[in-house]
């Protein structure tokens, strides 16, 4: 293995983008991008089609040169220090970029050798990545004959061969069946626990909800949100809200509940008999809400803290229509 790079202090951000703009001819793909990705975290990068996700990832991985602004990976500028950045980074593009005429093992061995690993290290590393991605049994199969999910795994195995500190995965879950998705998420969690920083892009926010520590939402070349997942859910919620499931539809009882002290609003949840109850935390707590409901004569079968639905958050933050 090449000389081990000093592990970054975990408080130093892994990726920093400042004032990044990017145009293709006259078309402004990125307007003004500023965000940080904390080190050793799993960071979601979400946006609709054409938002500029791939463009940002290509900037980070040195495929594109920043036109204005700076992009730093572990404190190194991608424009000048690109060889060092490439050494510590693995990028998995959204298309299958593979030598389909090679076998799985040849393919991985090729990249390991291209990164300059000596033969013995290669053997060990390949065994490791094949095991991690569960592709050991298919090592001598031609890549061309593999299913999409398997090719996705080979792609992931490929970015792991040089033991990068940061992984950029462009829509790795697209085209995978639910089971393969869950398995992919497991592999990503395992990688994070090994201390890697992972940026994963997706169109679907809810897909990343459980997985990611933090998330960036991008739309039309601008950042709409950057922060923790929980922060996104609480974002803009003025009062704590609980979701209440009655035994039977409320009808008149809803009015009664909303007049109880400390209750601010009772809204129906579309498509169910549930209601969302918002309350003033200075007058009530969750027990108080439950009590008020029972006092109003409601039979409660379910009661939980309501979160703004992720899809709702996504819709609120992004604009209608593709550009």
């Amino acid at each position: 293995m090449t000389s081990p790079a000093p592990k970054p202090a975990s408080n130093e951000p892994a990726v920093v983008l400042r004032g990044v703009q990017h145009s293709f001819r006259k078309f402004k793909a990125l307007v003004d991008i500023n965000f940080d990705v904390p080190s050793q975290s799993l960071h979601g990068f979400v946006g609709p089609n054409g938002a500029g996700k791939t463009t940002v990832l290509k900037l980070i991985c040195t495929l594109l040169r920043p036109q204005t602004g700076t992009v730093k990976v572990f404190g190194r500028d991608v424009a000048t220090d690109y060889l060092e950045v490439r050494r510590r980074l693995g990028f998995m593009p959204d298309h299958f970029s593979m030598y389909r005429q090679m076998t799985v093992y040849e393919y991985l061995d090729f990249f390991a050798a291209a990164y300059g690993l000596p033969l013995e290290t290669r053997t060990r590393v390949l065994d490791d990545v094949l095991e991690l991605t569960d592709m050991g049994g298919r090592r001598s199969d031609l890549i061309n004959g593999l299913s999409r999910g398997m090719q996705q795994r080979v792609g992931l195995a490929r970015v792991l061969v040089n033991d990068p500190d940061i992984l950029l995965l462009d829509e790795p879950a697209s085209g995978l069946d639910p089971r393969a998705r869950i398995e992919l998420m497991d592999v990503l969690r395992a990688l994070r626990s090994m201390g890697k920083t992972i940026i994963i892009s997706s169109h679907i926010l809810s897909e990343l909800a459980e997985l990611c520590d933090s998330v960036t939402i991008i739309d039309r070349g601008t950042i709409r949100y950057c922060g923790t997942m929980q922060g996104l859910l609480d974002h803009q919620a003025d009062y704590p809200t609980y979701r209440l499931t009655p035994a039977e539809p409320l009808n008149g009882l809803r009015e009664k509940l909303s007049q109880a002290t400390g209750i601010i609003s009772v809204e129906e949840v579309e498509g169910s008999s549930d209601v969302r109850v918002a309350f003033d935390p200075e007058q009530l707590d969750s027990n108080g809400v439950l009590r008020a409901a029972m006092n109003a004569g409601i039979t409660v079968t379910g009661f939980a803290r309501a979160q703004r639905h992720l899809n709702q958050a996504f819709m609120d933050l992004t604009e209608k229509g593709v550009r």
Partner: peptide, 14 residues
């Protein structure tokens, strides 16, 4: 043609 060029250029080589 087989879209493998970008991965090759991402190697830490000039």
């Amino acid at each position: 043609r087989w879209q493998t060029w970008s991965c090759l250029t991402l190697l830490p080589k000039s």
